[in-house]
Design a protein around this nucleic acid. Structure first.
Lengths: 310, 310
DNA sequence: CCCCTCCATAAGTTTTTCTTGCTCAATCCT
DNA sequence: AGGATTGAGCAAGAAAAACTTATGGAGGGG
């Protein structure tokens, strides 16, 4: 193989020639028009021939530009086809989604249910595992992860930046509550503490919530109930076992149904957003794109009063 | 046009798949093997699929890799063909060479004569002009230039880093010389001064030569003969009009024929080398490559004692 | 005739790519 | 076997490429 022309310049040329304008090409490519101008210049320098004639503020292809345009379009189209071909691969079109334990039950499951309602024949695999995950070896199409820092090189979509707030069962509050939303006088044993695990070191604790609400209490985890999973904290609160610091997105259904009540308007933002990651080539797949869109829409930004992030 | 896979990674993949080794691919691409390794990894991340299986120190294509290799090779071949097609362009194959005035007569002309001896039917245009030159607009295939700093983006080949030395006609030296190679006692009017022009500000003067030879004389240009072209300085010396500070490559023929004599082993290196520039795509053309090779071979590095560069 | 759009250019910054230096695993060769 | 060799992976820093911002100029349209 002999020396190739600069491939990114070829790409810029194809778009610019098709668009008939550097500005339009720039917006299609998602860069500034100056960048396109420079790429075209690079290519012209490489060939030693002008590809566009510039007259004032508009451009037109030269003979040479016209001559090569169809070939560039074809070659780039072929390369795009490679990407498409690669995805079909094993001609199974199962959608493989990987989630952390904490999100599987209360967050992902109801949303997948919505998707399956709309497309009942869709084949979805859900894998529950903690970061880090090797998407490549396990043929995972979409990974949901806490934080945007795992998986460099993959396409990232931020889903929701959640917050936590004190919740408990209405019955529990009737029996043990004293009507004070500051929770200042509650007995230590009434608090449910969540042990977030090593991947979630920055998750807020009861001490953080009290700090955000203006207090300075720091309930001792050794006295209250301790659970090792955030969805379990919600479930425990729902069962009337105490007051949990629950994630809003996970408690929402229970709150709306009245199975849980919000004890205070004060909440604490998590340290990181929940994100979806996928191999860039797979982002174009209809099923992946559909799921990401659904998740994006149904994982709304938190509302209500929010305390300072820790 | 949808999103394209990273094109340079595709290129690396094609070479690596063909070579069957990242190391071989690296040497073909002119980069380190680590660079290839990373590019392949990029592409695998993009697709979310492995393209090679690694076992110890060797690699093999996966199914997926095998599936896409032919398509990548084809697409890249098509792009390479674009470059080739571009060069044939107007189906005339005149070789257009552009040189500065100073090199045209005594340096380029005899070398082109050699080329035309070997290929008498070759059509060559020689254009004589000073830097900077617009290669693109004038369809110039090869530009010879003093210095390696003009024409960024073009392929550069360094031809010769020349030096200047005092030369004169044997007859002149017999009549006016005193046998002293330091030239300390020569009358100021015997010196031929070359005015190099604005593009050659760093060219050495008689003062530089005296400094390099250990003296400190600084002949006054207003007394001696002044010429505006280095080849004219040589010609003047040949005609017995004085002692010139001549460029070795330009005086060589006259020196070997005895029409000029070298007055001193001390010479001064020029500030920059002479270089050939060409659009990268044209470097592969047989005629351009042939001429560049000829020029490289017949423009040897200077030999003999050389003073310090100024 | 003025204004507005669009391209060119330069300087500075960011991002990508590459190199260097090291480690590890497999193979080769006495 | 066992040291030597070869080739790939990885991480840090260096180098190169690409991009952005800001500014200027040339046309075309109101």
């Amino acid at each position: 193989m002999e020396r190739l022309p600069p491939l990114n310049a070829i790409k810029a040329f194809e778009v610019a020639a098709r668009a008939g304008s550097f500005t339009l090409a720039a917006s299609e490519l998602g860069v500034s028009s100056a960048a396109v101008s420079q790429q075209i210049r690079n290519l012209e320098t490489w060939f030693g021939k002008q590809l566009f004639v510039r007259s004032g503020n508009r451009i037109a292809l030269t003979d040479a530009g016209h001559a090569i345009y169809p070939q560039t379009a074809k070659a780039l189209g072929d390369i795009a086809a490679i990407g498409r071909r690669m995805l079909e691969g094993g001609l199974r079109t199962r959608l493989v989604v990987s989630v952390p334990f904490s999100l599987a039950e209360l967050w992902l499951a109801p949303r997948l249910a919505m998707l399956l309602d709309a497309f009942p024949q869709m084949a979805i695999d859900v894998r529950v595992e903690d970061d880090p995950v090797d998407l490549m070896r396990q043929n995972i199409d979409l990974r949901i992860s806490y934080g945007d820092y795992h998986y460099p090189g993959l396409k990232l979509v931020r889903l929701v930046h959640d917050d936590v707030l004190p919740v408990c069962a209405p019955e529990f509050w009737r029996r043990h509550g004293n009507g004070d939303p500051s929770l200042a006088d509650l007995h230590e044993s009434q608090f449910i503490h969540t042990n977030w695990g090593p991947n979630y070191a920055s998750h807020p604790t009861w001490a953080d919530w009290f700090a955000a609400s203006g207090g300075s209490r720091s309930p001792d985890p050794s006295h209250g109930r301790r659970v090792g999973l955030s969805s379990l904290a919600i479930a425990s609160a729902r069962l009337g076992l105490g007051i949990a610091l629950g994630q809003r997105v996970m408690a929402r259904a229970d709150l709306e149904a009245g199975r849980l009540i919000e004890l205070s308007p004060v909440s604490v933002r998590l340290g990181h957003p929940y994100c979806a990651f996928m191999p860039p080539a797979k982002a174009d797949r209809a099923d992946v794109a559909g799921l990401v869109e659904l998740l994006t829409k149904t994982a709304p930004a938190t509302c209500g009063k929010v305390g300072a992030p820790r």
